[in-house]
Each structure stands twice: as C-alpha cells, then as structure tokens.
C-alpha cells in the first residue's frame, strides 16, 4: 500500500513540477474528497493536515495548512464541487497525471472512513472529467483497496509514514 501511494504521490508531484504547476490541486483533491459528505469533520481535517504537510515536504504549521484547507473549501463552495473537480481533472490532464491523481484521491478516501458513496462519486467525477474509463477506475480502486486492510489509520500511515499509531494519533 505504502509503495503504491508513495509512487502515485511522487508521480503526481513530479508531473506538477514538470509542467510548471504548483501542487495545490492536491489540496483540492483532498478537500473535495474530505468534503464529499458536505462537511469536513475533525478527523478528516487532521488527515488533511498530515497529508498536506507530507506532500509539501515542509514545516508549514497546522494553522497554515488549515487556512489552505479552509480557502480550498471556500473555493469549492463558491465554484461548486463538480466544477472544481472538473478543473482539478483538467490540471491532472495537463500534467498527464490523471491516474496518480485518482489513486491519491482513492487513498485519501480510504484514509478517512473508507470509500463512502459520496467519496466514490467525487473520485468518479475526477476520473471521468480526466478521461479515465470506468473500467480503469474500477481497476485502480480494486488495486488500492486490495492493499488496504480497511483501517483508515493504516491507510493514513501509508500516505504519511510519520503519523503516530492509532493509540496516540490524537494529541
């Protein structure tokens, strides 16, 4: 699992950098997935903080990342989730990184409460707008889900190796 997600994130960040984009669409992907059910709860916000700090490989304070998440949420509310998903998908297409982007979206979905119906809809929206076939999306979902033991924390640890184990995750 860790290898799959790590490769996808590497590929995604590399594609963004190669094409001159900032990695902020990753924030949008995360927030789109986390807010799929209409709100970002504390657990999802924590997950986003962990993931973004790792993705951006920097010591951005939780407060700053929290502000980024809030800003992204406001943009999604203003633009509409579907429209924002299309934009993110277009950026992924620009960078030839639809598959890694969708993989990361699936992983982020699994890292909250498992792949819920609302989250699946968001992932499908990004995949469809990115030109990924339903069959390929099913393959990617199966591939990532196969390596997940169903525990969101373990998935989070695959994305963010440094996060503490479940017992001490809330600090």
């Amino acid at each position: 699992m860790r290898q799959i997600i790590s490769n996808a994130i590497d590929e995604l960040c590399s594609a963004f950098e190669k094409n001159g984009y900032n990695p902020t669409p990753v924030i949008d992907i995360g927030v789109l997935v986390a807010s799929a059910d209409g709100k970002v709860d504390e657990r999802e916000r924590e997950m986003l903080l962990d993931v973004f700090q790792t993705l951006m490989d920097t010591t951005l304070t939780p407060e700053v990342v929290d502000n980024l998440v809030t800003a992204s949420l406001e943009v999604i509310e203003a633009a509409g989730a579907e429209s924002r998903a299309r934009l993110v998908a277009s950026i992924l297409r620009d960078c030839d990184a639809v598959e890694p982007g969708v993989k990361v979206a699936i992983a982020l979905s699994l890292a909250s409460q498992g792949l819920t119906k609302a989250e699946r809809t968001v992932v499908e929206r990004i995949a469809t707008a990115g030109g990924l076939s339903a069959a390929r999306l099913a393959e990617l979902t199966a591939e990532i889900s196969k390596h997940s033991d169903g525990d969101p924390i373990s998935v989070r640890q695959s994305i963010v190796p440094s996060i503490p184990p479940p017992s001490s995750s809330k600090q």
């Binding site: 590497d10 960040c13 590399s14 950098e17 190669k18 094409n19 951006m56 490989d57």
Partner: peptide
C-alpha cells in the same frame, strides 16, 4: 530545495 519527491529537472523544451 523543492521536495525531493518532486523528481526530475523539468524542461520547457521537453514539454
């Protein structure tokens, strides 16, 4: 100093 995970040096020409 961009994160190492961002990978190879990009090139406009390559793009």
């Amino acid at each position: 100093l961009w994160p190492a995970r961002l990978g190879s040096v990009p090139s406009v020409l390559m793009a």
